[in-house]
Amino acid sequence: MDQGSGAMNPEEALLFAADAARVMLESGGETYRAEDTAVAVAGALGGAEADCYATPTGVTISFVGMDGRVHSIVRRIKRRVMHLERVALVEEISRSLVAGTRDFRAAADELGRVEGLRGRGMAASSAAAAAGAGFFTLLFGGAWNDALVAAATGALVSRFPPVMARRQMPDFFTNLVAGAATTLLCLAARRFGLATNADATVIGALMLLVPGIAVTNAIRDTIAGDLVAGVARGADAFMSAAAISVGAGAAYQLWRLAGGAL
């Protein structure tokens, strides 16, 4: 963020609004929320007739400044990782800016801080993944041993997407390999007598990968009238689901070829 003093100019306001919307979309905020935030912020910073068009893959904002000139900016969004704390904080920044309880400099600093916020550490997120997978297995009718296998698999496999993202691997490939690895680990665990209910075990562990929220959000966006965003999210969800299915399916076929029962 620009640290200069003096009056804020339209360019700064526009950059700030665009960054607020971008951080929100990158962190799993809804499309309309990102749009509302950008418009509210741009309006509060002196832009008349501000408008924002957001999709999961990009934001476009334009407004007419006090001087009557038209300003606009495009921000591309490449990565989307769930970080709900960021969504809440950006919302809070935009509200305080609109209410006038925070000035532009403070808001810009805060937005920079929020963008730099790291997720939880490896230990905490692995434990959370284990809990998510294990309890889902119980919910789907698995027994305690199934839940433990799913938890271990989930903790292991949840380490995988961040590593792949750092190496700039496409999500499709990540999901494919993660789906296959999850399925193979669970089937192997059943083969060695650690798990009994393979379906519940695999579902619990796969729950960490499967784009259930993405499908739901795609429909929610469409209901809210953000048609392009909804269709884009739907396509994203479909590709993830397809990749996981191909991976898991390949793992099943391999398992069968190797003589294992389904």
């Binding site: 799993g28 905020g29 809804e30 929320r33 769930m82 709900l84 704390e85 969504v87 809440a88 919302e91 809070e92 998510g132 889902f136 919910l139 789907f140 379906d199 695999v202 579902i203 796969l206 729950m207 499967v210 784009p211 259930g212 929220i213 499908v215 739901t216 689901a241 996981i244 299915s245 898991a248 399916g249 099943y252 076929q253 389904l262």
Partner: peptide
Amino acid sequence: KRPASVYIACGIIPLVPGGGMYYTMLEYVR
């Protein structure tokens, strides 16, 4: 004083159709 969506995104997790996607895949594989 936080956006409702942060609670919604978590709250719908048990309902979200992950199991359905799994069974869909399983049926195709079979």
